[in-house]
């Protein structure tokens, strides 16, 4: 499979708005992400790993330096569109809409993307099956699903519009080891079989072990 650079972090520095001028979460960070690989951003609490993921996903702004998605400067593109077509995000707390069923959550994501596909419902079932869920799960409200099942729905949702990058913030943080491994297997398959770039933020060594590349963040909260 042909690997290509999908994401490039170029001398990115970030500090909180209310922090003193010279105190940064991280400073002058540069990294390149390719398709077909699982990346793990690892670090202690407060090291800025979730912040980095937020910058990459376009949920956080106000950074110094440049972030490029397929050579496009993130600060110059429409981030709503970026989030509903180029990247898929998976959170530790799943962030599903609880009043909707599993399939409705995925369908909504497809609709926000503006997909014109005719057989969306069939595609939803395919996606759910690809993450190990059945038709029965599809029509259940998400609150009626277990944590692992909800996380699978969240992954299926992130894949619904076939993005190039999957960003996952502590995706197995609330799950047991067995389920964690199942979820990690899905991510590895996405990278290795579907040639996607998977970036996982975690503090779990088990997750880090299964990554193709590990980026270790250390605390940068010191004066430069």
């Amino acid at each position: 499979m042909k690997k290509e650079i999908v994401l490039k972090i170029d001398h990115v520095s970030y500090r909180y708005k209310d922090a003193p001028k010279d105190v940064y979460v991280f400073k002058n960070m540069s990294y390149t992400f390719e398709t077909g690989k699982v990346y793990v951003i690892k670090g202690k609490s407060g090291s800025g790993k979730t912040t980095l993921l937020s910058l990459i996903s376009g949920l956080e702004k106000g950074y110094e330096g440049k972030i490029y998605f397929r050579d496009r400067d993130l600060s110059r593109i429409k981030l709503d569109k970026y989030r509903n077509s180029d990247i898929g995000i998976v959170f530790q707390s799943y962030n599903l809409l609880v009043h909707l069923t599993a399939s409705e959550n995925i369908l909504l994501s497809m609709n926000i993307n503006g997909m014109k596909e005719k057989n969306k419902k069939e595609r939803v079932i395919e996606l759910l099956e690809s993450v190990g869920l059945t038709k029965d799960h599809a029509n259940r409200r998400v609150l009626k699903l277990s944590g692992g099942e909800q996380q699978r729905v969240a992954i299926a949702r992130s894949l619904s519009y076939n993005p190039g990058i999957i960003l996952a913030d502590e995706p197995t943080g609330n799950l047991d080891r067995e389920t964690e491994n199942d979820i990690l297997k899905i991510f590895k398959d996405l990278a290795h079989k579907d040639n996607k770039c998977v970036i996982i933020v975690t503090h779990s060594d088990n997750v880090a072990k299964q990554a193709d590349e590990v980026i270790e963040l250390t605390s940068q909260k010191k004066k430069d």
Partner: peptide, 15 residues
């Protein structure tokens, strides 16, 4: 929370 989720998955503020 619903607003947060919708915005995160790329729904425009106006929508």
């Amino acid at each position: 929370y619903e607003i947060g989720v919708l915005r995160t998955i790329g729904m425009k503020k106006s929508l």
